[in-house]
Simulated scan of single mutants.
Amino acid sequence: MAREKPKPTPGSRSKSGVKAKGAKELAHALLYLGPSLILFLIFVFYPMVKTVYLSFYLTNPSGDPVVWKGVQAYLSLLGSGAFRNSVLVSFLFVLYTVPGTILASLLLAVLANVKLRGIGVYRTLYSLTIGVSVASAATIWMLLFSPADSGMLNYWLHLVGLPKIGWLVTTRSALPSLALMTVWMGVGFNFIVLMGGLQSLPEEIFESARIDGAGRWKQFRHITVPLLSPTLFFLLVVDTIAAFQSFGQFNILTLGGPDHSTNVIVYSIYREAFFNSRFGPASAQAVVLFVIILVLTLVQFGVVERKVHYQ
């Protein structure tokens, strides 16, 4: 006589039902995320893995790995004076641009955050640079930076009796000049973000401060900045990453010169790979740049975020 199969208990039915429902929801999620995951695999994850792989090799002009270098590839890179110079130039560029962009944008946002007739015109003007491409901005600033009499900046200096400046042709002024252009380009995005942050601040706090006799400076220092600190922290992280990835202005205006004074890491990677056909060392530089940005971002989240005031 055959034995009867044990009947499933209500508890086992519910567990199996939950598992089936979870598997179904996972399948639906993967179905919707599938196209995005495929694009990420093709254009993000595969290039990252390929870059790390090539960084341990010397390659032929076609980019095929030929000679295994291993860790020695990174040791040779870190011992290179040219690469150390590009790292220093990149850090200086970040130091020149990030604080300047945030401070200029904050000043403009505070000035534009008033209830005046026609203030929308100024808000539009302050944010216009967000729609300007790097190539267009470089063309505009190339005319401004021209060392000849046709250059607008030197023309204005001549009008007030000051000597001309070789904006892009001297090692002392080339990097600050590019930083000035980059600050101008970044103000538009930062201004829009900060305006959104300012307009979301509760007006009741400022009314209470005014009743207590607090002036504009005290309101800005003790109320506006603390409440706006999450937005400022976001811009700090985003602007730092963007500054390390800047390329167009260096490629169009200076080509890394004069005397490598504007040879940032990204431009060095570009020259090494597509001019010297040394894809292995270029990949190693890209990996080092990724590590630098990652470490700086972690430091910002670990140190700077502690001073952020979340409501």
Rank of each mutant, 00 (worst) to 15 (best):
R3E: 08
R3I: 15
E4K: 12
E4T: 15
P6L: 07
P6T: 11
K7S: 11
P8D: 06
P8V: 11
T9N: 15
T9W: 10
R13G: 12
K15S: 13
K24S: 10
L26V: 14
A27E: 13
A27I: 11
L31H: 12
Y32W: 13
I42K: 06
P47L: 06
V49H: 13
V52N: 03
Y53C: 13
S55H: 00
Y57M: 03
T59P: 03
Q72F: 11
L77S: 01
G81V: 13
G81C: 11
V89Q: 01
L92H: 06
F93I: 03
V94Q: 02
V94A: 05
V94Y: 01
L95G: 13
P99Q: 08
S105V: 03
L107Y: 08
A109E: 00
V110C: 07
L111Y: 11
N113S: 10
V114Y: 15
K115F: 11
R117Y: 15
R123F: 05
G131P: 07
A135H: 10
A137N: 04
L144F: 09
S150G: 15
N154M: 05
Y155T: 06
W156I: 11
W156Q: 09
L157W: 05
L159C: 14
V160N: 14
L162D: 12
P163T: 06
K164D: 08
I165D: 00
W167K: 00
W167V: 02
V169L: 12
T170R: 06
T171V: 12
A174Y: 00
L178I: 07
W184H: 06
G186T: 02
L194M: 05
L194D: 03
M195G: 01
M195C: 05
G196W: 06
G197W: 00
G197A: 07
S200Q: 11
S200C: 13
I211K: 12
I211E: 06
G213W: 11
G213K: 09
A214Y: 08
W217M: 15
W217A: 09
I223C: 04
S229A: 07
S229P: 03
T231M: 04
F234L: 13
F234A: 04
L236I: 09
V237S: 05
V237W: 01
A242I: 08
A242E: 08
S246K: 08
F250E: 00
N251L: 08
L253F: 04
T254A: 04
H260D: 14
N263M: 10
Y267F: 13
I269E: 02
R271I: 15
A273D: 00
F279T: 01
S283G: 09
S283R: 00
A284V: 04
Q285R: 07
V291T: 11
I293K: 05
V295R: 14
T297G: 10
Q300A: 08
V303E: 05
E305P: 05
R306N: 08
K307S: 14
